[in-house]
Design a protein around this nucleic acid. Sequence first.
RNA 1: GGUACUCUGGCAGAACGGUUAUGCGUGAGCCUGCAAAGCUUAUACAAGGGGGUUCGACUCCCUCGGGUACCUCCA
Length: 462
Amino acid sequence: MKLQDTLSNSEQELDISKKVRIYLCGVTVYDESHVGHARTIIVFDVLRKYLEKKGIELEFIQNFTDVDDKIISRAQTEGTTAEEISTKYIENYFKDFDGLNVKRATNYPKATEHIDDIIKFIEKLIEKQIAYTTKNGVYFSVSKFPEYGKLSKKKIDELQSGARIEIDEAKKDPLDFAVWKFSDIKPIWDSPWGKGRPGWHIECSAMSIKYLGENFEIHGGGRDLIFPHHENEIAQSESCTGSPFAKIWVHVGMVTINGEKMSKSLENIKSIKHVLKNWGPNIIRLFCLSGHYSKPIDYSEDLLKENLTKWRQAETCYYELIHASSENHEEINPIVKKASTEFDNALEDDFNTHLALSAFFQLVREGNRLAADEKLGKEDAQIIKIELQRMLEILGLSIPEMTENEKQEIDNLIENREQFRKEKQFEEADKIRDKLNKMNVELIDHKVNTIWMKKENIKAEN
RNA sequence: GGUACUCUGGCAGAACGGUUAUGCGUGAGCCUGCAAAGCUUAUACAAGGGGGUUCGACUCCCUCGGGUACCUCCA
C-alpha cells in the first residue's frame, strides 16, 4: 500500500512484512468532539480495518492528552479538577466514537499515566545537552537539531522573523519549546527540576516510543498538527534516540464548513452527538470517506444528503440480497470480482476511499439491478453478499440487526397485507403498509413476492 | 509576508499527452392496484485566466489570479 508521506512529500510504500505499528495523535480531552475529529479518526479506523482484513497484524496506539492548559482553565471555570474534566471527556469520547462504529485502539495511553516515562525522556535530552532548564521550565533547544523544520518545510530563520510566539526572555531562542513547565497549580508532579507538568509535545514522543519502539511505520493526525506538534515530536525523538522516528507521516485534511476550518474558536463546530442524532453513524462515515484523506472536505447538508441517498441504495441492496429466494443463476462472479478488485486497488493506491466507495456502490447497483429484473437468485445473492459484507466491515458501515420476533411480526403483517391485496381490498392493505412504515419498515413489491427492509431512522436535519 | 496544499460539468470526484469517467442532482420511461424503493435511459458550454512546448494538453512548462491550512492552542 502506498501512502502520502508528509516528511518526504511523496508516496511511500507501507512495509507490511511484519507487524504494522501506527500511532495516531488523538484529542485533548476538554470538550465535545466534533466532525473534524471524527474524520481523522474514521480515516485511521478504516485504514486499520482494511489492513486487518488482509490478515496483517498491527498495533494501533492513540493517545489522550489529559494534561493541558485548556483542561486546567476549563476545570477552573467549572470549579472542578482537571482530572474530573479529562475523565468526563474521555468517557464522552468513547460514547461518541463507539456510536460512530470506530473500533477501539490497541491502547489509549494518557499523558498523566506516563509522567515517569516523560521525565526519563527529558533526562536523556538534558544529558545530551539538547534541553536546558530556565526559571520557567525545561526547554528543548531547537538549534541543537539541525533538521528542525524538515516536516513542515519551514526554514528556521523565517520562523524566527515571523514569530508571534510570546516572548520569554529566559529562553535561549524564541523557537525553543517547553518539555516541562514549572507550576504550582494542580495537576503537578515532582521532577528532578522542580514541580510542574509536561509540555504538550513530549508525551507523544515518550508514549509512541514506549509502545511502538524508536521507529514505527505510521504516525498520523490532522493536518493542523504538522506544525508545531509533529515537528517538535520529531526533533525530540530523533535527538533522544539518534534514529529516524516514524517512517510515514499521514496527515488528514481539515473538515471545513462554508469553506472555513471547523474549530471551536470559530464557533462553527458540529458535535458528534449532534450529527449522530441527525444522521447516524453510516452517513457520517460515508461523508468522512467521500474525499481523499489528504484534502479538505466541506461539511454541507447537500453532501450529507447525497450520502444518505447512496446509503439507502446500499440498504436496499442488502435486503434484496438476504431475501433472494429464486433458483436463477447469472454470470455474477466477474462482476463481484471486478468490484472487489477495484475496491482494494483504490485503497492500495494512497488509500483512495472515494474510489473504493465507487466500487462499493457499483456492487450495490449490480445487486439492485438483478433484483429489479427479478433475476436475483439465492446462491448468486449469497456470493454478492459475502463481498458486500466484507466491504461494509472495512468501511465500518452497519445495517441494524433485528430480532427474530421483529422479523416474525413483519412477516405476519406482510402476509395479512398480501391477503387484502389478493382480495383487492387496497385500503386495508395500505393501512398495513403505513403501519410498517411507522416502524421504519419499507416494502418492495416484486412480481412474485414482497420483501421488507428495515431502514435506519435518519432525521436528515443539519 | 513566508510555507504547504489546492482550483475539472449545478454539486462531489477520477484517469489519461489524442477515447463517454463515475456518482449525486435534473428530465423521461419501466415496474406497481396505487405508492415507495429500485431499475433503464437522457442530460452537462467541464477544466481559474493568459501564454508556451506539441501534429495534438484537462494532463508538461511559465506566468497571473482565487481558495484553504499552517506560521499561536487545534484532529
